[in-house]
Design a protein around this nucleic acid. Structure first.
Lengths: 245, 245
DNA sequence: TGCGTGCCTTGATCTGAATCAAAGACCCGG
DNA sequence: CCGGGTCTTTGATTCAGATCAAGGCACGCA
């Protein structure tokens, strides 16, 4: 189960998945879960599509008719309140699955940040796929379980951490993206705006900016350009992030 | 998939599951997913146990060796920060699955609120179970997907809703518990303390108390006893809960 | 080259919820 | 029936982060 669980999976009948723009990892091909001999069936079930930056390809509240697998680009997932308040519930890249839930309507909007490519499956073809390939189902269960753990971690952040702790947590999570089993990177690029970070961390743009500035003046990070982060003191940052100081 | 997804499932070789104390629903027996003829195999894999109120049966950070299915009672799930700040990530009752994630350690602590009974499966026996009974796996996937949706809803609440909106959301969710497809109850009992509610909603005890009092003086609810809630104006409460006013 | 439009930063002020503090209310065991 | 917890409510005060406001910078485009 572990091998299945730890590598991204792309359901791309063309077999042309990009390495993930978020983390640089190249997703394992569909063949990990489905024998090559059955690829034709997968191709028949899938419809490929794409979305330009700023445009959404899943809309909160719309009838949930399909299941998506990201094969290129990055997107943000968010929920809106009627007055416009926004909560970003995740940033996703290559290999991510969307629209799995058993509900009538989509629970969030998915909007491309960098040009997104995806494979779309109807509910019916997804069900057939899962019936035919139990390994697929195992993979999805593992993915969903891990996302649940991440969601609970985010609840802790949103419910109980200070602005400083939230920003530090976010930066350290970004540093770890896509470097499983290796040391986190000390230099990386944020592919999202301050506004997106704010809506992900439950704060405002101004608080994000001020907090980053503070961390910079304390010598814990450097910010060569608005989207570039260099972590100067990882240990201190980690300690702030998990409130152990 | 829907029938499997919508009713609680209890993996109890003794077949003696209680109706859920949280919501009154009697869980479907294990037989929905596993043929009676194979019950012996399930019994062999499962170990039953129980936990008294206030005691935990899963501890955050401990090696994740087992998988749990609640067969009686209710529990709260929470994560702690080193300085004692606490975030409750969920309240669970009969039929709930715990410890599914593919990680080395448990992501949260599970503590009984009312005497809890459970079935425990080792990782290995869970894997065998899932291999043998694909319907089990389908069920777990459906459950995990729905929990993910709920977690995202909670992120919106924690990240963007006001105290008033959080409390109203919480009360309306409690009113809906276990009455799928029926009108929410207008009278119900809260099985948790103000402290638990506070840690679930990312607020303090005092704010919970004040907010409840405010809703009461406005005539939207009544509070006959600290744990009893009567909703007097459901429409207004719903509107506050989803910020559409 | 100049101008508009998004971002981002910084400063001043405000405010919703936290914190600090003190009484009730309730429950259980003896 | 009493005593000592725990839980809840209410009030006074504080404060972290939001809001309001003003520039600054980078980039695309005419």
């Amino acid at each position: 189960m572990n091998a299945i669980a730890t590598r991204p999976l792309v359901l791309d009948p063309d077999g042309a998945a990009d390495p993930c723009a978020r983390c640089g990892v190249r997703a394992s091909s569909v063949c990990d879960a489905i024998p090559t001999s059955d690829l034709a069936r997968l191709s028949a079930a899938a419809v490929t599509g794409h979305a330009a930056p700023g445009s959404s390809f899943i809309d909160e509240g719309e009838p949930a008719t399909a299941f998506f697998n990201i094969t290129g680009g990055t997107a943000k997932l968010y929920k809106l309140l009627p007055d416009g308040r926004r909560q970003i519930v995740g940033f996703v890249g290559v290999g991510h699955f969307l629209g799995l839930a058993v509900s009538d309507t989509y629970a969030f909007t998915a909007e491309a940040m960098e040009p997104v490519k995806y494979c779309r499956f109807s509910r019916a073809s997804l069900r057939r796929l899962l019936d035919d390939f139990p390994a697929m189902e195992k993979k999805l269960l593992a993915v969903a379980s891990n996302e649940l753990v991440a969601a609970q971690e985010q609840m802790l952040l949103l419910g109980r951490k200070t602005a400083r702790e939230r920003v530090a947590s976010f930066l350290m999570a970004q540093a770890r993206l896509g470097v499983a089993c290796m040391a986190p990177r000390s230099h990386f690029t944020l592919p999202m705006t301050r506004g997106d970070i704010a809506d992900y961390l439950g704060l405002t743009i101004e608080t994000i900016s001020r907090t980053l500035t503070k961390l910079r003046t304390e010598g814990l990070i450097e910010i060569p350009g608005a989207t570039d982060i260099v972590v100067k003191n990882r240990l201190a940052m980690e300690r702030i992030a998990d409130a152990s100081e």
